[in-house]
Amino acid sequence: MTPTADAPEGAGPPADPSPAEEVSADPTPAGGPVPGVERASPAELVAAAGAGDERAWAELVRRYTPLVRSVIHAHGLDRADAADVHQTVWLRLVEHLGRLRESAALPAWLVTTTRRECHRLVRLGRRTQPFDPYDDSVDGHVGRLLLVDAASPDEDLLRAERQQALREAFAQLPARCRELLALLAADPPASYREVGDRLGIPIGSVGPTQARCLARLRRCPALAQYVRPPASGAEGTGGDRDGAVAARR
């Protein structure tokens, strides 16, 4: 669905749905990186999108949709609500492109905005659906609500950011590494023999190749920034983590 299909004259956005096809056809990075936007930092993408670059926007959507979805998922919304929140977050980002331009804090902004919209719907749901199969007392509702709100937001955020960092690092790996690691990380994992057959490499080199690919994964900028001296992690505040992810280049 594009917004232009049935827009009244003058009320809809300009008609140019062209970037949609490329990205939706290949939402995973398995096809190999497109030079340019794939390696751009969030700040560069935000600046380019703010200046009207649709490829930069498509890359932002491709790169951060999993992050937004993982936050939504943590709130247990149904699919319609999840889709509404997702759409709202991206519409908000369009509005905010100009204001985010000087900041690299896009992932943190996305997480915060998504959480807030989820909370809105969770609370509205409480009011519009008075029958809770587990507990229909007012206290029950309040308790459930507090539980949702207090579901350790820092852990949510931390988990979502780490997964995002892993996916970003993974996307930067050479295609063969991605294929091999995807097979071995699947549930259930492929056997070394299957991996060897699929990739056409001797079974004896699957293990060493896996080790090399994982080492390479660790060195990717998206992950390397997390590696810190062992004794320095005493603070571990959300702000540090936001900064760490946001400062990635």
Partner: peptide, 14 residues
């Protein structure tokens, strides 16, 4: 639909 709506959001930019 998630990707489509997110991509389409950009057309509201200006």
């Amino acid at each position: 639909e998630f990707l489509d709506t997110a991509l389409a959001a950009f057309s509201w930019r200006t």
